[in-house]
Each structure stands twice: as structure tokens, then as C-alpha cells.
Design a protein around this nucleic acid. Structure first.
Length: 594
RNA sequence: GGUCCGGUAGCUCAGUUGGAUAGAGCAUCAGCCUUCUAAGCUGAGGGUCAUUGGUUCGAAUCCAAUCCGGAUCACCA
């Protein structure tokens, strides 16, 4: 079924072509808006473009078009033209049949498969420290966008590229070797990712101290920073790792496994999941092959010291290093290899990377290089860039201890949800398990919504005070509307069978709600096109708002007539379904009571 | 300096391919629980859409310049 807006565009174009054979318009050029509340009508066709081209008076044109539409299309019942705007009223009967057809469709708005395949890479942690607050926006965005695309008919692969090798993990390893006395997550009771992260922090403390000591002994600062023994040892570990030293390799595996076990717990709590894991330790060598091929094709060049570069100055960029003089690979080299590997695995149409905007340049260069190399994966690469999350005090810095740990953050949000639920005296009639589930839905929902409600590319400030607010533009507000509906539906059954409008025309708020719900497929399509969960946050909030207004002014259980009651129960059912569906795409559960 | 992104109410943000008098939430103030859940509803105040110029019947939206903030331009990842 076409959306109302699409139907209006098609009908208006057809009407104009019929009334004015010289018009020759297509439906794409018709502008349709929601009618402003101060005017009568539901949707508005903007007439100005045709006033000029058809040399018609707006009032005359509006009347001719409006009359024609009403005569030829039962969806319209009334029209009026105000200053070049043709306001159209949609038939109540159209909405009644819309309700009858869709109210029991649980997955209303979900699209059939379109045969396109998309990979979304997100999360992509380093294995030297736990997931912190800054990663949350990435995780929620990546997961939500994946679900949005799935609901829009795409075949989605959620991928996670783990940065499991390199100097950073060697730093944790050397600190552990020196100071841990064989401490394990089991022996200490500390979550694996936190344990490894603690030693990463310890590395930095020790390193700082060693540098200070060396400077005190009279060394230059720069020399001291290179000669500090713990750094030298870490670099030595990295060389041994690359040489395949079995002992180093074993410790590396052990510590990474501790981290993965910890990550799994956190991912589970966050409600995110992955279809495909990639590890840089498996892919970092692949890039070198591509670089070799690029050299042979003459697209890359070698400098005197043996380093390999690509010249992007013709594209307004710089020269970019792809291989160090010593032959080791850099970040870009690995990404070239991973891009090809992913494509060989899945042959996806689009390969999206959820990565912070500080890497905009890197991603631009990555795509450009792959294009120049003629890699088939190049065209599909899409950088879903998002702004960094900052605290009111400024940007988080792991070395300055201003990082907020993700596990702590979740626990705190759930605790606050509990506190506020208890304060509101809303705990009666729940079992302990139900309450725990509720606190989780509310606390985690608040966090997700807070991070998803802002357009991805905008940077945002995380204000703890604001994030725990459960009023206004929040997940809680929407969850509450859903719970209210469920409460009504549990006490009032729908007598199955189609409803009709009968003597009682739709009230404005009933119609507002129907208009909004009818737009869901279009809203979803837009969110998928833009990779933007924020538009769904706004949409869900708007529906909940409209429902709450309706709820405050009109009764469902005690409606004016039995027919009205049926219609409202169906409308409430669709509202609840839509809220649940939208929130599910954001990764947020909605309770049946709260 | 080059490139990219942002600037809308006191604060946090919406604002479709340009359309009517620029909208929400928070905060502030005033109301609303004998009716389906008040985590709610109704109302009020609050704006030089950074600035200037241009395009157009019409600009927060498009173009140009300027100002402010941020990111990036490593043989780091």
C-alpha cells in the first residue's frame, strides 16, 4: 500500500496533467507537507511552482485541482486553498480501512527483502582496556543502524574488527609480567577486561615514573621517553610476538581471552551482538599483498628508504604512507587488507564503518586508495561518522583518569532507575525478577535513547544529570505510554471484525495519531537511507506525545459508543505495536506495565 | 595554513527535495488526579536561525565571503 503522501503526489500530478495538458509534471516535483494546525486539512500541496509555470491564479488553480482530486479519488473529502497552499482533508473511511487492515499486523512497516547486502562494522575495540563510555555511542549506533537496515529489507552482517595486536596490548602484557604475580581474573575476581586494563594503566604510571627518574639522572626528556625500560621491554615483546615467540604468543592469547570474556559480559548487558568477528592479528598481513600489487601496477611508489606511498595530491589530499621503510604495515595497510577480506567473504553492496569523526580523513583516504587500486570493495565503502561524546568537563582522556567505564555506567543507570521507580512508589504488583527487568529496561533505555536521539554526526555532551532524567524527550516517556496502552488492552478486548466510522467522525487527536502511524514506513525508509536512528527517536516520542494527549482528553474504555471503543482499541493496539517496533530498532525494550 | 564538520530559545536538540506566523524537551511560572497508570496532561513567557551579501514568488534550508568552536593533515592506531 502506498503512503498517503505518495498517493497525493501521484494523484496531484495526474490531475494537473489532465487539467492542464501543457503542464507535464511528474509526482516527484509535487511538494506535500503536513498541514499546519491553524488551517483545516491534513496534507498540503504547495501550488506556487505551478502558479508560475501554468500562469494561473493560485485560488483558481487550487480550486480546480482540489475539485478534481475530490471527484476522482475517494481518499480526499475536502479542500481549501489559502495563499497558494491547497489543504486536503483525508477521508475518515480511508483511516478506518487502514486500521482494519493493519492493526493486527505485528511488524507493520517492516519491508520485504530487497536483495541488498550490507555489512556494518562497529564496536571494534582495542584489547588493552575495558569498553568505556565513549564506545557506547558507537555500539548503540552500529547495532541500531543494523536493525534499521534489516527492517528495511537489507541482509545485514554485523561485524566487529578487534584490534588485538600491537604495542598497546604489549604494554599491558609487560606490566602484567612485571607486577601481577600471575594474577588472573579467577584468582582476583576481577573481570578480565578490567584486569588487563588495570595493567595498561599501571604501564603508564610506571613509564611516567621511569621517565622522570631518567630525567633526574640528567637525561634529555626525549631520550628518557625512548629509553624507559618498561617501554623498551614492551617493544621487545612486540618484536617477539611478530617473530612468533611461543611463550609471548601464549601470554598474548591468554590475556586477550580474559578480555574477550569480559567484553562478552558487557556486550550482553548492552544488548549488542555480532555475526562476524575479524581480528587484526589475522588481517594485518593481507594489506601487504595489496600494496605489492599496487606497486606492480604502478599506482604506488617506493621512496629511497624503501617506504611505500601513494600520491593523492591530485585529489587535493597528501601523500600517504602505506608501508614503513622496515617493511612493517601501518594502520592503513591493515585496513586495505581487511576491506578486501570482508568483500571476499560476503560480496556486500555496502560496507559501512561506524567510526568517530576524528577518522574522517583516514576513511576518505581508505576509500580513495581502494578505488585507485581497482578493488571491487571500494565503491561500497561508507563511513558512518559520528561525533565524539564529551563530558561537561571536556573530552575524556584515558591517561588522565577521566574515563567513565561502560560497566559502571550501566550499573549506575539501572540503580537510578530503581531509585526513581521506588521514589515514585511504582513497585507494587511486581515480583522481584520483574522489577529487576523493569529497572534494566528503564535504566538502559534511558542511556541508549540519550545517546541515539542526537543526529550521529553531531558531537554531543554527556550530562549525567540530564541523562538520568526520566521525563520529557526520553525512552521512559515512550515506555510509559506503551505501558498505559497495555494496561487498557489487558482490560478491554477488541471484538474482532472491521470497524467503520458511522455517525462519529474521527476526532482531531484520533486522526493525528493515525496520520503519524501511517507515516511509519516512510519514516523507517528515511532512517535507513540516512543511517540515522535519531529520526526514529523523534518519531517515537511524537507518537507517544500524541497518544498521551489523546489519553488525557478521551476515554478508550468508556468511549462515546461501542463502535468508537472498538476503533480506539484498534488504534491503541497499533500505537503500542508501532512504539514497540520503533524502540526495538533502537535496542530499547518497552514494558507492559511500569 | 589546507581539508572536513558544526553554530537554531537560558540549556539540550528537531526542522524532509527551499514553502504558511521557526518547533520539542529541560529549566521558570500558572493550572489539572471521585473517570482507562500524574514517569502524565493543559497553558504562559522565552528567537537578529553566528554575521553580511546573493539567488528566488518564497531561505534556518541553496551560493559566496566573514566570525566563532571542533576534528584532521605522523614511518601512531
Amino acid at each position: 500500500m502506498l503512503s498517503i503522501v505518495s498517493q497525493i503526489k501521484i494523484a496531484a500530478a495526474q490531475a494537473l496533467n489532465h487539467l492542464f495538458p501543457e503542464a507535464n509534471v511528474t509526482d516527484e516535483v509535487i511538494t506535500v507537507n503536513e498541514t499546519k494546525p491553524e488551517f483545516t486539512g491534513d496534507y498540503t500541496v504547495v501550488l506556487f511552482p505551478f502558479v508560475k509555470s501554468l500562469r494561473q491564479n493560485p485560488a483558481v488553480l487550487g480550486k480546480a485541482l482540489g475539485d478534481y482530486l475530490i471527484q476522482n479519488n475517494p481518499i480526499f473529502t475536502a479542500h481549501s486553498t489559502v495563499a497558494g497552499f491547497l489543504n486536503l482533508t483525508i477521508s475518515d473511511n480511508y483511516f478506518a480501512s487502514f486500521l482494519n487492515e493493519n492493526y493486527s499486523v505485528k511488524d507493520f512497516g517492516r519491508k520485504e527483502s530487497n536483495g541488498k547486502k550490507v555489512m556494518i562494522e562497529y564496536a571494534s575495540p582495542n584489547t588493552n582496556k575495558p569498553i568505556h563510555f565513549g564506545h557506547l555511542r558507537n555500539n548503540f549506533l552500529g547495532w541500531s543502524v543494523s536493525e534499521i537496515l534489516k527492517a528495511s529489507g537489507y541482509d545485514v552482517i554485523k561485524a566487529n574488527l578487534v584490534n588485538d595486536r600491537g604495542i598497546h596490548i604489549c604494554k599491558s602484557m609487560i606490566a602484567w609480567m612485571r607486577y601481577a604475580n600471575d594474577a588472573t581474573p579467577e584468582s582476583t575476581g576481577i573481570k578480565g577486561d578490567h584486569l588487563v586494563g588495570d595493567y595498561y594503566v599501571m604501564f603508564n604510571d610506571v613509564y611516567k615514573q621511569e621517565v622522570a627518574d631518567l630525567i633526574a639522572q640528567g637525561k634529555e626528556k626525549e631520550v628518557a621517553e625512548k629509553e624507559a625500560s618498561i617501554l623498551v621491554d614492551a617493544q621487545d615483546l612486540l618484536r617477539k610476538w611478530e617473530a612468533g615467540d611461543p611463550e609471548v604468543y601464549r601470554l598474548w592469547q591468554t590475556m586477550n581471552n580474559w578480555v574477550y570474556a569480559g567484553f562478552d559480559v558487557t556486550y550482553n548487558k548492552l544488548g549488542v551482538d555480532f555475526d562476524q568477528m575479524y581480528y587484526e592479528s589475522n588481517t594485518y598481513l593481507l594489506g601487504k599483498e595489496i600494496v605489492q600489487e599496487g606497486l606492480e601496477k604502478g599506482i604506488l611508489f617506493k621512496k629511497e628508504n624503501g617506504s611505500v606511498w601513494i600520491d593523492l595530491t591530485a585529489d587535493g589530499l597528501d601523500e600517504k604512507l602505506l608501508l614503513r621503510a622496515d617493511g612493517t604495515s601501518v594502520y592503513m595497510t591493515q585496513d586495505l587488507g581487511t576491506a578486501r577480506l570482508k568483500y571476499n567473504d560476503y560480496k556486500m553492496d555496502t560496507s559501512a564503518y561506524v567510526i568517530a569523526d576524528e577518522q574522517n580523513y583516514h576513511m576518505q583516504v581508505l576509500k580513495l586508495i581502494l578505488q585507485k587500486l581497482g578493488e571491487p570493495c571500494a565503491e561500497g565503502i561508507y563511513h558512518l561518522s559520528y561525533g565524539m561524546v564529551e563530558l561537561p568537563s571536556g573530552r575524556m582522556k584515558s591517561r588522565e583518569g577521566t574515563v567513565v567505564d561502560a560497566d559502571d555506567m550501566i550499573a549506575e543507570m539501572v540503580r537510578l532507575a530503581k531509585e526513581q521507580t521506588e521514589e515514585a512508589g511504582k513497585t507494587e504488583g511486581f515480583t522481584e525478577a520483574e522489577l529487576e527487568h523493569l529497572y534494566n529496561m528503564v535504566g538502559l533505555g534511558a542511556l541508549k535513547f540519550y545517546l541515539l536521539r542526537v543526529e550521529p554526526k553531531k558531537k554531543m555532551i554527556f550530562d549525567p544529570k540530564e541523562s538520568i532524567d526520566l521525563h520529557g524527550f526520553t525512552a521512559t516517556f515512550i515506555q510509559y505510554a506503551h505501558a498505559r496502552i497495555c494496561s487498557i488492552l489487558s482490560k478491554n478486548d477488541i471484538a474482532y471484525g472491521p470497524v467503520s466510522i458511522g455517525k462519529d467522525p474521527l476526532l482531531q487527536l484520533e486522526k493525528d495519531l493515525l496520520l503519524q502511524i501511517e507515516q511509519y514506513p516512510a519514516i523507517l525508509e528515511q532512517a535507513a537511507k540516512e543511517y540515522n536512528p535519531a529520526s526514529l527517536c523523534n518519531y517515537a516520542f511524537r507518537i507517544a506525545q500524541t497518544f498521551n494527549s489523546f489519553y488525557a482528553q478521551h476515554s478508550i474504555a468508556n468511549a462515546e459508543s461501542e463502535e468508537k471503543k472498538q476503533l480506539r482499541l484498534m488504534l491503541a493496539t497499533m500505537t503500542a505495536n508501532t512504539l514497540q517496533n520503533v524502540m526495538a530498532l533502537l535496542g530499547i525494550e518497552v514494558p507492559n506495565k511500569m
